Simulated assay, not measured.
Amino acid sequence: MDYRYQVFLAVANNLSFTKAAQELYISQPAVTRHIRELENTLGLALFNRKGNRITLTAAGEIVYRFAQKTHVLYDELQYELGTLKQTFSGSLRLGASSTISQYVIPEVIAAFHTRYPDIDVSLINGNSFEMEQKLQENRIDLAMVENYSSKTDLQYVDFSDDEIVVIAGHTCKFGRNANGTLADLQHIPLVVRERGSGTLEVIEQYLKSAGHPLDRLNVILHLGSTEAIKNFLPRFNGIGLVSVNAIHKEIQLNTLKIIPVKGLSIKRKFRFAYPKGPLTGNMKYFVDFVRNYNMTL
């Protein structure tokens, strides 16, 4: 694929020359030069420039649509040729929800890179809803999400198990009673993830089905990441709900503790999401690699 189109996609995805340069590991003047050359070749402006803000022109929207398709086709070409030569290259744009991107998948990506060093892997993160949206917009090739709900135009494949647990700071007074129940949680200050988070969606659905909807609990704060919850709890006389995968280090360091609650068992699956149709190219390599990887979760 013509490198100028790769630069164009990076600028269009970020709507920023600076962010595109950072993503591509080239200078901003180099990004500007590539875009100018592409515009001269096509004879049309691709971006509206208003101060520090840029938007796609009508021509830019058309080029963006076709460049995205070309990018996918080029990766499929690389995959087919790599299969014949037993060499593998191309790119793979991954998106993962916060819990997966921080605590689950980095080790696997490192192992994948060792196995396929010529495949250029990139990873962005956000909540599950945001990753599904970026997948629908063709800004990533493959999403890894932790929510229950599904988009009708996407396919989902499980790749790992997870459990959401009740945690608190080590000195928190709550949890000293080993016979705590779901009903007891209604009176304890609770911190949870933000709206749009797959973790929050799973918690809400579970509690509703258990007869203790979240709006009846004493939720005092929504925080935008699991890290924020973990950093908040040691200084807070209350509890949080997070993935067990996120707290291995804190349990070892004795800064957080898991509080057992009778009748509470929030199990879920981490899943791949991708456009409907067969998995092809580097997406298939990665999905097969992850599903066969021995993750100690």
Rank of each mutant, 00 (worst) to 15 (best):
F8A: 00
V11R: 03
A20N: 14
A21Q: 07
A21I: 03
A30K: 06
V31G: 02
R36A: 07
E37M: 09
A45T: 09
N48W: 12
N48K: 07
G60F: 01
A67R: 00
D75L: 00
E76G: 06
G82V: 03
G90I: 14
G90Y: 14
S101Y: 13
Q102H: 15
V108I: 06
I109N: 05
T114A: 04
Y116G: 11
D118A: 15
V121P: 14
V121S: 03
S122T: 12
N125M: 14
E130Q: 15
E132S: 11
Q133H: 12
L135N: 00
I140C: 09
S150A: 09
K151C: 05
E163D: 08
A168R: 11
C172P: 06
T181M: 13
D184E: 07
G196Q: 13
S197R: 14
L200K: 04
E201F: 04
V202H: 04
L207V: 08
H212P: 06
P213Y: 12
T226C: 11
I229N: 00
F232T: 02
I239W: 08
L241W: 03
V244K: 15
I247Y: 06
Q252R: 03
F272N: 02
A273R: 02
K276Q: 03
L279T: 11
G281R: 00
Y285T: 02
F289A: 09
Y293V: 14
